[in-house]
């Protein structure tokens, strides 16, 4: 594909980099990537991929912007926070300003066994920017099953880790971690804190690997897991080998995709918040719900969500009936509040 003058000019500094060149740039322009999670990792990754000219970005996040995000989540500002904007929509809006020549798809959704395969079906690569292992295990199964490369990335405090997973070639996430790494067994940014640079480095390492995969330079991929601590100036690499006994890439057992581990009420570690999902997919009218809830407590309508305060609890309700119940870490109590105010 011959690039026109304007395109060549825009990406000229990247085209000058010999491993990419004009051919690599043309590959990037026709590439499709899903960024799963738009927190610190996802906003840095998506911004860098958009500037690099990756043709299509699918942006997926279930959350909305809060003031504690602004310290490190690159695409958001105070106005997004005031307007309670969902992260995926706010990110897409900013990215269009950064690079209007690309295509974007923004999904304000929780990733689960019902939608994960459809979400990654039309992309060449998945960038992990999630904040929990349950979603990562699900992504791992979907990517291994579909043969889609994905790049694990995570950070906390001043630490970070990345690992590039090419199904059928490298170890997968389940080779690295046993299945019982559930909520509450790991440290997260909400419990141990995070400095912005740790997230920026992880995202930069992930995007570099993404550029190699998308431009066809697979021989240059990092075959080791990279682990660093910025505060103590330590970078380490550990070669990971596939486990023959791995249930996912070895035995091709996809328990999570079958919905075996699906939880409809999930404690979001460290946030004193429980996410409640409807048992069946549905869409609700936030306008109607606002009218119903107004006599019962304080209701505030954001652009794409509704907040409802009752006693010590706050419910953040999305149009797909998914609800974040703030003020508790007890899934049963959250489910009961959900049943009382939203329905079963």
């Amino acid at each position: 594909m011959e690039l026109d003058f304007t395109t060549k000019e825009r990406y000229s500094r990247q085209i000058l980099f010999p491993p990419l060149g004009e051919k690599g740039q043309a590959q990037l322009l026709k590439s499709r990537v899903a960024v799963i999670g738009l927190g610190a990792l996802g906003t840095v990754s998506a911004g860098t991929l958009a500037r690099a000219g990756v043709g299509f970005l699918k942006l997926v996040d279930r959350d909305y912007i809060e003031s504690s995000n602004l310290q490190r989540q690159a695409l958001f500002d105070e106005e997004d926070c005031r307007k309670l904007r969902p992260k995926a929509l706010a990110a897409a809006e900013k990215l269009k300003k950064i690079n209007s020549s690309l295509s974007y798809s923004a999904l304000v959704e929780d990733i689960n066994h019902r939608n994960v395969e459809e979400i990654i079906r039309d992309v060449d690569l998945v960038l992990d920017a999630t904040d929990n292992f349950e979603t990562r295990f699900l992504l791992n199964e979907a990517c291994v099953k579909g043969g889609t490369p994905w790049i694990y990335g995570a950070c906390v405090a001043s630490y970070g880790v990345t690992f590039t997973i090419i199904p059928g070639e490298t170890a997968c996430l389940s080779c690295y971690l046993p299945d019982h790494t559930g909520p509450g067994t790991t440290v997260s940014c909400d419990t141990a804190g995070i400095i912005g640079p740790a997230a920026n480095i992880v995202a930069s390492l992930q995007v570099t690997e993404a550029l190699k995969i998308l431009s066809g330079a697979r021989e240059d991929l990092n075959k080791s897991m990279t682990f660093f601590d910025l505060w103590t100036n330590n970078f380490s690499h550990l070669e990971l080998h596939r486990q023959d006994s791995c249930p996912v890439c070895g035995k091709k057992e996809f328990a999570r995709l079958a919905g075996e581990n699906q939880q409809y009420s999930t404690n979001l570690c460290g946030r004193n918040t429980v996410q409640v999902l409807p048992y069946t997919p549905q869409q609700i009218s936030l306008e109607k719900l606002k009218a119903l809830l107004a006599p019962l407590g304080e209701v505030h309508a954001g652009e794409h969500l509704l907040t409802f305060k009752t006693g010590p609890y706050e419910l953040v309700i999305f149009p797909d009936a998914r609800t974040l119940v703030k003020g508790t870490s007890d899934p049963k109590l959250a489910r009961s509040l959900y049943a009382r105010y939203i329905g079963t």
Partner: peptide, 30 residues
Amino acid sequence: QVFVDSVRQEPDYILQDGVRVAIFPPIAGG
């Protein structure tokens, strides 16, 4: 997670002389 010469192993795995053992905590944040 405990890796012995790059492969994750369980607590009952018998160690041999000279192996490299790397021990990581799982990191979830993002």
